[in-house]
Design a protein around this nucleic acid. Sequence first.
DNA 1: TCAAAAGTGTTATCATTACACCCATGG
DNA 2: CCATGGGTGTAATGATAACACTTTTGA
Lengths: 238, 238
Amino acid sequence: MPYTYEYPRPSVTVDCIIFGLDDSQQLKVLLIQRNSDPFVDHWALPGGFVEMDESLEDAARRELKEETGVENVFMEQLYTFGMPGRDPRGRVISVAYFALVNLSEHTVKADTDAGDARWFALEEVPQLAFDHAEILDAALARLRAKVRYQPIGFELLPAHFTLSQLQQLYETILGVPSLNKRNFRTRILKMGVLQEVGRQQNVAHRPAMLYSFDKAKYEELLQTKEPDLLKRGVDFEI
Amino acid sequence: MPYTYEYPRPSVTVDCIIFGLDDSQQLKVLLIQRNSDPFVDHWALPGGFVEMDESLEDAARRELKEETGVENVFMEQLYTFGMPGRDPRGRVISVAYFALVNLSEHTVKADTDAGDARWFALEEVPQLAFDHAEILDAALARLRAKVRYQPIGFELLPAHFTLSQLQQLYETILGVPSLNKRNFRTRILKMGVLQEVGRQQNVAHRPAMLYSFDKAKYEELLQTKEPDLLKRGVDFEI
DNA sequence: TCAAAAGTGTTATCATTACACCCATGG
DNA sequence: CCATGGGTGTAATGATAACACTTTTGA
């Protein structure tokens, strides 16, 4: 029992909420099955204890890779959950990270620390360990909010995608039945952040134009348009 | 030396970034002067260690009150800073909270744990302890972003305010020289979340209408308009 | 009657919405 | 030649930006 402190200290963990989009444009979340107490056999978010010499994000990436094999993904800090009592083992403060991946490009393999790892459609998520259901809800809310003002949706799609795929992605994430095709296209193309990169092959209908997201142009626009944006003044969306 | 654990644990602290608006519509931040090592005599964000039986937000409110006397303010979690090395005493993970207050309604008194507590205009903020400059930057960025899509600016104003005050507030926060008065008014009034509550008295010019923010109506609009908003589909602002 | 700030009218321009229609491909 | 998505034309409506103007007060 080697580590002794003058005052009590909480444990600090990271948890990862990984969203992915499958071939049929369905939004899924990556869960692991716990193989130790507490909550043995329950499904949970991948995560674990932060080491003393690694940053929080490094910890999140390490745990994600150890438990699911997934690496090199877009990731950002979501929120820190610290209610006393959220973990039966004692005071545990968890920094949650959320990540987006293109499901087809990331093979999942259950690994050392976890019994199993699987993608779940959002409607099929089982009862989760700890307060992980709450964390998942927060992540979903963040995804829905963020997708409206930052081009993060592209992280979920393959590098080359059609406008219909992109539109479906937005419909899925936002949970709206169907946006107007005409207007969606006009809007998204007018932004000027998509690049034509070829056409679909061998499809039983008019082949769609494939696009890629032009990150450089987006950054450039951010610089250029920011000033005007500010000029608009208030907004608060509603 | 009573607290012993099998694995090493980081310390967890909270830090508060409190923004206030003074009589002359200037944006200020509340800092304390440290009276102990490390960084004795340096200015820093109010904050301190999280107790084992309090939530993170409770800890933030407690420290804020202890160190500055400020209480009952709008507060939300900002971000968690956890780079190894950010505190010379060892691994310290800090959950930052940011808060908005109407400066005239909150008296500041340096208290037990802090040598002194004072409001600083943003341009006059001295060198800060730890990575607090970075935390302050993050808070400012959040304030600027958030004020555009949520009516949090009202937290900085007195309960009754004029449209000119509100406009100045936005100009201050966003750092734009001067919005168009006509258009600002049209926009903000069209939203329907302001209530007329009387007129200015004894001013050497046409007395302005005073308004209050109608929170109930705002919540109602959120419910009502959310569906249409979603129908609009993509946006990502730019 | 003047300075100072409040507050309004109006127009040109641009963005958004809604709906109907045509196009290219493989089976 | 048809089913299946891909893709376009256009007009009515509403929001935004720009600028000049009038109003009310205390000193």
